[in-house]
Design a protein around this nucleic acid. Sequence first.
RNA 1: GCGCGUGUAGCUCAGCUGGAUAGAGCGUUGGCUUGCGGAGCCAAAGGUCGUAGGUUCGAAUCCUGCCACGCGUACCA
Length: 557
Amino acid sequence: MLIMKEELEKAIGVAVTEIWGKEIAVELTRPDEQFGDFATNVALQLAGTLGTNPRQVAEQLVTRLQESGASTVREYTIAGPGFINLRLTDTALVAACNAEPAKTYAGQVIVAEYSDPNPFKVLHAGHLYTSVVGDAIANLFVQAGGDVHRVNFGGDVGLHVGKTLWALLEKLGGEYPEKLADIPANERAPWMAEAYVRGTNAYDDDPIAKDAIIALNKAVYGFHERDDHTSPLAQIYWTCREWSYDYFNEFYARIGTSFEKYYPESETAGIGLETVRRHIGEVFEESEGAIVFKGENHDLHTRVFINSQGLPTYEAKDVGLIMKKWDDYHFNRSVVITGNEQMQYMQVVLKAIEQFAPELARSTTHLTHGIVKLAGGVKMSSRKGNILRAVDVLDAAAAANKEVHGQEDEGVTLGAVKYAFLRQRTGGDIMYDPQESVSLEGNSGPYLQYAHARARSMLRKTETQPGELTDLEAGERSLVRKLAEFAEVVDKATSELMPHHICTYLYELAQKFNSFYEHNRVIGSDRETQRLRLVRLYADTLQHGLALLGISAPDQM
RNA sequence: GCGCGUGUAGCUCAGCUGGAUAGAGCGUUGGCUUGCGGAGCCAAAGGUCGUAGGUUCGAAUCCUGCCACGCGUACCA
């Protein structure tokens, strides 16, 4: 389709040049179905510079196109103030359905970093959201031919570790790593999460605890520097760190994503520190005892990269991360997905990197999203940390699904959550309503899954083999027209890194099909082979689109 | 204060590289079932696109002011 569309745009551009001697970028758009398959407003654009009536311009252009235009176009019409609408031949339209999305990233190495949970802490709703979005975006790169590497970054060192460790010691009654064996595997994550909350409160309320936590934080850096795995405290640290990664992996497996590499901060801190120090004077400078990057010179904020104690801040660790990713992958493009509270922060980091490694900064894209809000609110106990956890969201969806559907179905529950997250444009906060997401009516993941299952069911029901699609009837043509848009929609979602376009499209497609289905018999009709082909095309397209979103398309539900 | 972002129907959202009557879903109202999975389809009601200006043949879309909310604004991430 893309190729055909580009050819048509080019042909119109050539005609314009031949008639008026002007170069103009022609862009075909998708008009309302009543007008045609493609439309262009070139006549309106030209009328201004030519000083003539747009409809006259359109007529002149259409006459020319009718003489020498593409064979894929059946007719050109002029409408409204001077739009030119094109209607394709059935053959061209059907051919367009089989077009593959563009392989924009063929042969390119892409690193997608998302999710980024911190060891020793709980996974919250934001991690679920960013994981779902990141996974879908990574899928788009894969679809476009990229060699995609999914990676994850998290703080296995830092104050939050000290806080958790402090409370863990209290729970254990001291540095007794052997007591960890008493914690059952399924209680480890909540046990640690609770410790983090307790440690945080102690840090804020109790000066003595605060000093102890700061000391613990320093001690943890020491475990990495000395490669200490044997001292009692180190044993507790490494074991709990491992527990965290187990907990993350279990969660990712549940939601159907996985990462090929974790970059713990402990591994990026050193290289970050080193890199920043190497560029003191040219890029970074000393200020009030710290090493900073003067963002003011670039219309950004000044930020600290190495604090006055000589420790790397997150800024330096992020510098290290980008350097490390580069060493590991030599990527063509690196995408980092985080919450939008980090947007301006990341601009500073990238601007700093641009000063000494411009190609790295240029090939790095930072995408941000908002936070997940639960419709109707949810009871959040301060004992749990007063946050909406990832499992709370999944459990709410599962409960709603069970209530409506009468049974548990992880595939449907996940489809509901993922679709609800992805159908909204990435960037702003999103409102999640569990009831609505599983409702199976309206714009939901399960609606699409069901639509797919129903189509597959029809294909199962008959022995007749799908045939060629020709001489389309009105209802069929309308559906084919929609199917032909798929590749374009995927391309748009890929170039903008906006998966929601696919959601919007799939829902419109399903509505189109349901309408067709309601008014046209397939099995047993005299156009059965043709329509079966249409049904299969539809089911395949739905399945393909859902797969890009990371949503399963069961054959039966 | 400054910077970034958001503001579209009762609710949740598309549309935002300017174009043809501003689109969906939920909810509301009415219709369709002796049929391939009715978890559907058809239809109606509902919007001064935050607000005031500006640019343009044409603005939800671009520019400016203002209002509301969110985030950021040096040693957190």
